[in-house]
Amino acid sequence: MPTRMDQHPWRLGPRSQRWFDRLLVAGLLLLAVGHVLAGQPASALFSVAEVVPLLWRRHHAWPVFLAVAAISAMQAVAVDEPTVGQLAFPVAVWSVARCAPRWQGVAALLVGYAGAVVAATRWLVGFGAGEITAGNLAPYGVTISAIVTAAWALGSAAQSREKYVDSLVARAEQAERMAEREVELAARDERSRIAREMHDVVAHGLSVIVVQADGARYAAAKDPDVAVDTLATISTTGREALTEMRRLLGLLRDGDTGVAPQPGLDDVRHLVDEARAAGARVVADLPQAPTDVADGVGLAAYRIVQEALTNVRKHAGPAATASVRVSVGRAVEVEVRDDGRG
């Protein structure tokens, strides 16, 4: 039986994500206290303004990135030295690449490259580098661009992995639903088959019992011995029907295959003998030796003859003669005729 996939790939839950973001912001703000101790209130203020929006970066990645980028641009005008708050920029880039549409992630990457050039230029001014050339600008610009690129790449990889994992989970759940549906259809077909067989068993057995009981009622007054034999036939037929009914009901119980084997082609002779014992005139042409046919074919032939003889007893009239012919060659042929009133 298929089992439901209850364990998805591990990932932080919503509550854990909120606590992680709070700890991240708290850690950055704790580092920003160093600006206050160093007598840099502007740097501390800008750091707080850049770090706090990260609390909403998962659900509003693009607006948070725009806010961080705008505050970073204002900081570049007011402050010419690195600040702790600038660590929020790669975090915001990662968040856009991870949680936002792909085009927004690419836009954030390009803004990051532009910001790397601006930041490197402002830092060189703040450090008193004098003339700014490509030689002294490149190390800072390349380093900052590498950090931004790494943040974007990690975010994009995480987004791609999540989509891939979600697609695998969806396909597994769909396959599970299809397997459950196939099991349900198979069980429905089996119940229908058992219901048909139960109908055949009940109809055949009861028809024999009714015919025998009618005969015994009329014979009891004139010939008690006939009535005794008829009652014995009724008893035998009832027990056989009950045994086959138990077998069919046993199929409905788990781990039970029934209390008797399924009837087959060789059991058709018993049907003929039973019909004759019930008073019907039956001419039979049956295979003499045991047959070797598939179980399903033998069961189908048995049920056909059983239903046909039941219909003869019900509808052909008391004086009808039935002929049953079964031949086994390249195929199994079953023919039941009667000369009754129809």
Score class of each variant (00 low, 15 high):
L252N: 07
P9Q: 08
W103M: 04
A275D: 04
R269V: 10
T121A: 07
A32D: 03
Q75Y: 07
S95Q: 05
A220N: 07
E81H: 07
D200E: 08
L66W: 09
Q86Y: 12
V33W: 14
V283D: 15
Q104W: 08
F89G: 01
A187S: 10
P224M: 08
V283A: 14
V210E: 15
G215E: 12
G255L: 05
G13N: 10
R177E: 13
P224I: 09
V328C: 04
E274T: 15
Q86M: 14
Y218G: 14
S95P: 01
G128P: 01
T149D: 07
A220V: 10
Q7D: 11
A120G: 15
R22M: 13
W152D: 06
L309T: 02
A32W: 02
D292G: 13
S47D: 00
D21Q: 09
V332C: 06
R191A: 15
H35E: 05
E182V: 15
L286S: 03
R337W: 03
R325G: 00
P287L: 07
V52T: 11
V117W: 09
F127M: 09
A120Y: 01
E50S: 15
G298W: 00
Q86F: 10
V84W: 07
S160I: 14
G34W: 08
A172C: 14
A300M: 05
E190A: 15
L24N: 10
Y140R: 10
P63F: 06
E240Y: 09
L45Q: 06
A300H: 11
G298C: 00
A157V: 01
A175P: 04
E184C: 13
V96F: 01
R177F: 08
A187M: 04
Y164W: 13
L66M: 13
P224W: 06
L55Y: 05
F46H: 07
R188A: 15
A73H: 08
A100P: 03
L23F: 12
L252G: 04
A280K: 04
V305G: 03
D339T: 05
G27Q: 02
S47E: 01
R330W: 04
D256E: 15
D295I: 06
F46R: 04
L54Y: 06
V118E: 08
T310I: 06
L248H: 01
P53T: 01
V52P: 03
S95H: 06
P139C: 03
A100Y: 03
R246V: 00
W103Q: 13
A301E: 06
L29A: 02
T237L: 00
P139H: 03
